[in-house]
């Protein structure tokens, strides 16, 4: 674990998490959640757990985001808050 890299990634995670919750465009929120998952996967890989990071990159950033976008194609794109 490299501490400056770890700190930078964790700070980045907080910023992306807040952005995904505050943006009003739901498509942008979902894509930001995918970016959040990918940064989280990087954090886990540099914490010496490559299996968990790999699974998160495949499931959280890949399949889960695709499922959410597929569901959003049947919903309204804009949120009120």
């Amino acid at each position: 674990m490299i501490i400056p890299l770890d700190l930078a990634l964790l700070f980045f995670l907080v910023v992306i998490g807040i952005a995904a919750l505050t943006v009003k465009d739901l498509l942008a929120a979902i894509v930001l959640l995918g970016a959040y998952s990918f940064v989280m996967a990087t954090v886990w890989v540099q914490m010496h757990s490559p299996d968990v990071g790999f699974t998160e990159a495949a499931v959280g950033a890949g399949a889960s985001t695709a499922l959410m976008i597929a569901a959003l194609s049947r919903l309204e794109r804009w949120s009120s808050d």
């Binding site: 498509l27 399949a63 499922l67 976008i69 597929a70 569901a71 959003l72 194609s73 049947r74």
Partner: peptide
């Protein structure tokens, strides 16, 4: 199958609409 079931949509006429714009 999860993706297909979430993205599939039948429109008002009951006709299957294969391609949806996101």
């Amino acid at each position: 199958s999860l993706f297909f079931d979430l993205a599939w949509r039948e429109d008002v006429l009951g006709r299957d609409e294969g391609r949806r714009d996101l």
